[in-house]
């Protein structure tokens, strides 16, 4: 019997493949949501310790 043919390696492989697929799916979902939010024009800017005009509340004329 080959040392890497034990049942234990099969279980470990299923765990690694499963986790890999979950991580891959997560990356795809974050990417897809980002694209949708940017397409919809949602502001993606947050506070970054600098004053920016785009983050100031709109003034009524």
């Amino acid at each position: 019997m080959r040392p890497d043919s034990h049942e234990i390696f099969g279980r470990r492989k299923s765990r690694n493949v499963g986790l890999g697929l979950v991580l891959g799916a997560f990356v795809l979902i974050v990417f897809a949501v980002t694209v949708v939010k940017l397409t919809q024009g949602v502001s993606m800017e947050g506070f970054d310790h600098q004053t920016r005009n785009s983050l100031l509340p709109a003034e009524e004329e």
Binding site: H6, E7, I8, R11, R12, S14, R15, V17, G18, L19
Partner: peptide
């Protein structure tokens, strides 16, 4: 080593 580890080796389906 493999016999001892068999008891605790978790498959992905177990987490699901």
């Amino acid at each position: 080593w493999t016999d001892a580890a068999r008891e605790h080796e978790t498959e992905f389906g177990d987490y699901v």
